[in-house]
Design a protein around this nucleic acid. Structure first.
Lengths: 181, 181
DNA sequence: GTAGACATGTAATGTGTTACATGATTGT
DNA sequence: ACAATCATGTAACACATTACATGTCTAC
């Protein structure tokens, strides 16, 4: 049986100690932010589907002093499904739709000044992202839970940092080139 | 009036000499391949929409010796719409869904050997891509048409090359790290 | 004749976001 | 009181791919 990427992402997150839809979203926004993002509109229906497929069980809790919530636990089948997916090589390098490159591609239709300003604005955003990665890196390195996961989580952050740095350098190089005429 | 990214992409491509849906798809697959990709299932309906919005006109041709085709020409409104879009800064750096990072993130659930093999496989694909970028670069540098566009097209390729190179280096670094234990 | 390039298009399906809708608890 | 955080969920809509459906022309 084959599931979509969102399903595998949630299956994986359920192994990290996150048990509710809300907690899954939080981990995503904090730690997977630079390479995976989904909304509640995807998370809750997918969790429902995961239970339906027998990949996890759900436990509805109504503790006093807390809002009611649903905790999800992977079944043996769920764990095996995750492992099987991990072993399969990825089919292709992702093609990101990059709006700045799209605009630059058609930039003979606008002034040099404006194209430069687009790149500058993009560079600032990249630099913010780079800073965020470093903050998350510190957070993960310092945390006590998920010790076993930390090593791999840092690898993904290193990827984000390296690629972002390369993009920032491209902004500098391109700006220089464009100023030369 | 605001249109979606696909519309702007097609509007832009119509300024490069491509006139038919088929030609648009070809240019995308050849030159925008690393940052923008859409299927015929998007192109043809969007072209229809573009005409409906008055951004382009269509000319249905049935020359003898050739399959019938439709040629699209930007109107003044279409050209202005493209220019307006070019001037607006991009809202955010794209978040690519990166499957290799997703797998790596959960890699404590698989053997070191297998994780290494995933990265190795990914590295090979990145190297192929890098080679492709260099080929396209040569092609663009040598072509006679689109002289005015060439400069910008090469900038986007440089981006692809730099980012891909950074990703390849990450593969090397991560492999080394993982072998150390 | 047949494979490949040229050429257009739709229907079904998959994937995802945003807006909407609800409600409890905690801290100020 | 009120804002923030915790918590779940659906409906409408946007975007995109794949499979299907059709047909011509060119070169072997």
């Amino acid at each position: 049986m084959k599931y979509n990427h969102t399903t595998y992402a949630i299956l994986g997150i359920l192994t990290t100690g996150c048990r509710t839809g809300y907690a899954i979203k939080q981990l995503m926004d904090q730690s997977l932010n630079h390479f995976w993002k989904i909304s509640y509109g995807q998370i809750y229906p997918t969790l429902k589907q995961i239970v339906k497929e027998g990949l996890a069980t759900v436990d509805t809790l109504s503790e006093e002093g807390k809002p009611s919530r649903k905790e999800y636990y992977l079944t043996t089948k769920g764990k095996q499904t995750l492992k099987d997916w991990l072993q399969k090589p990825v089919e292709q390098v992702p093609v990101e739709k990059n709006e700045i490159l799209l605009k630059l591609f058609f930039s003979r239709h606008q002034s040099n000044t404006n194209a430069l300003s687009l790149i500058n604005n993009y560079r600032e955003k990249l630099e913010e992202n780079y800073q965020t990665y470093q903050n998350i890196e510190q957070m993960i390195a310092n945390q006590q839970q998920n010790q076993a996961d930390a090593k791999y989580w840092l690898f993904t952050l290193d990827y984000g940092k390296r690629v972002t740095k390369a993009a920032i350098e491209w902004c500098h190089a391109t700006t220089t080139q464009m100023n030369k005429g």
